[in-house]
Design a binder for these strands. Structure first.
Lengths: 122, 122
DNA sequence: AGACTAATTGCGAATATTTCGCAATAATGC
DNA sequence: GCATTATTGCGAAATATTCGCAATTAGTCT
């Protein structure tokens, strides 16, 4: 059965306290060197498939992860990389896509990310 | 000055004829072994920065590229990976995000991808 | 056409990211 | 405490991407 190990607690804690989605390397760094990189990879793989965390892609070379709380999106500063959550949710978004589609019979998820310049980056 | 080489013509052609965004490996495969992988990487890097092609992320491990024609989104089948373009465009999307944001002063782009099940995958 | 210049390519090595196998460790049930 | 077995550490693949440099070649000028 699934076990509550110290490493996983630490990793979950790191993700919970994070102000924005983290890369595997960042998670490992925050968790401390005592947590092996492989352990982080295995942990996020499990947590992802069990749904407790979500993977986010911003077009960077590496994916980021965040605790899967309320559904939301992000705005990423293309200058400094800072990230802010946004909850803007166009009504009927997925339905509209499905109506237009000719090849799909269902749409069950979507990802929406914005790119802009934050106030700190003049 | 920028040169029109054979390799680049081939790569552009491959992307133009593609029915869906391709990975670097797929581009290379279609272009033929005579085109070195480094050349593909360099070509897509240039084309991306000059804006003739766009990078697309579907949550897979590798990014995909498509010719940067009319702005649009995609629906990806989570079962077979098939991809269809969709042009659904919620009105005032970026503006809405900016209004809600506290940290950003401008939003100049967004990515929107849908995930579902296509009709072929019962 | 021939020569020249600089952009581009091929190649191999260097990085970086992620996955895997396996022995050692440790969490849970009794 | 003991047994069972999930989990971890570790190093070795596998995969993806970048880089330096010498060789090639497109574009320009004569």
């Amino acid at each position: 059965m699934k076990r509550t190990t110290n490493d996983r607690k630490v990793i979950q804690e790191v993700l919970s306290k994070a102000q924005q989605p983290l890369t595997v390397r960042e998670i490992r760094k925050s968790a401390g060197q005592s947590v092996h990189l492989s352990t982080v990879y295995r942990a996020i793989t499990e947590m992802s498939s069990e749904g407790s965390i979500r993977r986010v892609d911003f077009g960077g070379r590496v994916p980021r992860y965040e605790v899967a709380g309320e559904h939301h999106h992000h705005i990423v500063c293309t200058t400094c990389g800072d990230i802010e959550d946004v909850h803007t949710e166009p009504r009927g978004l997925e339905k509209a896509a499905l109506v237009e589609s000719k090849k799909f019979k269902s749409v069950h998820a979507h990802s929406l990310e914005f790119f802009g310049v934050c106030k700190k980056c003049t």
